[in-house]
Nucleic acid binder design. Structure first.
Lengths: 172, 172
DNA sequence: CTGAATGTTTAGTAAGTACTAAACAAAGTA
DNA sequence: TACTTTGTTTAGTACTTACTAAACATTCAG
C-alpha cells in the first residue's frame, strides 16, 4: 500500500483514460485538485512526474475543457493553475467543447445520407429505398435528441445536485 | 461524392471512433443497420471490407454492448446478426456494460483514498488533512451521483423519446 | 544588449490498438 | 474416418497516441 497522494493520482489517471483522455491529464488534475493553492508549471513537473512539454500540452487541454483554470499573479511571470472544484460546471464546459467539431462533423454524415435518399439519389428499388430512408431518419432523430440533451445541459447556468436529483426522481 | 451506402458506413465509422470504439464496429453496425434482414459473417466480410477475424472480434463486442443481436436459424449452422434499432434500449445495455468493470475499479480508488484519510493514515498536518478529506469526499459524492444516474437509466424498462423529452423540459 | 527564467514546439520513441493473414478448432456430412 | 464448412485464435504489422528530451521563442532584469 503506497503513499495516499500517489495512489489518488494514479486512480484519477485510470479514470482519465477510462473517459478516453490521456492519463497525464488525470494526473495533472489530481495534483491540482489536492493542492491548497494554484501551482506553477514547475511545481507540476515536480509533483506529477511528467516533463514540461507534456504538462504544457495537457494543461492546455484541461483549460480548454474547463477542468482547470489559469491564475495570473501580478508581478509574477509564471503561469499558475488551479483545479475546478465545481464538477457540474466542468461537465457543462466539456459538453460545450465536445459538441462542436468532431461530433457535429460525424453526425452530419447521417444527415447527408438522409438528404440524398430523400432526394432520390442512388439506384435503389422502391422498397429498399423506403427501408434505408426510414433507418437513416430514425438514426438522425436519435442524434438530434442527444444533441438537444447535451445542448440543454450546457446551457444551464446552475446544474447542481438538486437538478440531478430531480432528474433522478423522474427516471425512477 | 461516393456511393450512398459507403458514405453512410464511413460516417458511422467516424462516429464510432468519436465515442472511443474501434471504427470497425461502426462499419459493421452500419452494414447491419441498413440490411433488410440478419446477415451472416461471410456477408459481413463482403459488405464491410473487413476480414473474418476482425468481424469475429468486433461482432462479439457489439453483441456484448447490445448494439447488435445474434440470430439463429434452425438447420443452419451459420451465425446471423441483426442491428438493434431501438437505440434507447442499446443505451441502457451500454450503461450496464460500462458500469461494471473498469469504471467501478477506477472510481473505487477515490473511495479508498477517502477511507484512508478518514482513518488517519498518512502523515499530514491537521489543516492539510482536512483539505484532502474534503476534496476526496466531494469527488466521491460526484461519482456516486453519476453512478446513481447511470444505474437509474439502465434500470428503466422504457427509456424513450417521451422520457427524454420530459427530462429536457426540466433542464430548460 | 546580454543573460536568465519561463513556456512552447518539434523530433524521436515507446506502447497500445486494431487490423490482416493464416493456422487452428469444432462440428456436421459423406 | 476423412472432407467441408464455419468461426476463433494467434502472430505479425501498420497506425496512432502520448510521452521525453532538447531546441527554440519570448519576456523580463541588469
Amino acid at each position: 500500500m503506497g503513499d495516499i497522494k500517489s495512489d489518488f493520482i494514479e486512480g484519477l489517471s485510470g479514470i482519465s483514460q477510462f473517459w478516453g483522455l490521456p492519463k497525464g491529464m488525470g494526473a495533472i488534475f489530481a495534483v491540482l485538485y489536492l493542492a491548497p493553492a494554484a501551482l506553477s508549471l514547475d511545481e507540476l513537473v515536480a509533483q506529477s512526474g511528467l516533463t514540461k512539454g507534456a504538462i504544457s500540452a495537457n494543461v492546455r487541454g484541461l483549460t480548454r475543457m474547463g477542468l482547470i483554470r489559469p491564475v495570473n499573479r501580478l508581478g509574477d511571470r509564471k503561469d499558475y493553475y488551479q483545479a475546478e472544484t465545481d464538477f457540474y460546471r466542468a461537465i457543462r464546459a466539456i459538453l460545450q467543447e465536445r459538441q462542436s467539431g468532431e461530433f457535429d462533423r460525424a453526425v452530419d454524415s447521417v444527415t447527408q445520407t438522409l438528404r440524398r435518399l430523400e432526394a432520390g439519389e442512388g439506384d435503389f428499388a422502391p422498397p429498399e429505398r423506403a427501408l434505408l430512408t426510414e433507418r437513416a431518419r430514425a438514426l438522425k432523430d436519435f442524434f438530434d435528441t442527444l444533441d438537444a440533451l447535451a445542448s440543454a445541459i450546457s446551457r444551464l447556468d446552475s446544474l447542481g445536485l438538486n437538478t440531478v436529483q430531480t432528474v433522478l426522481k423522474i427516471l425512477k
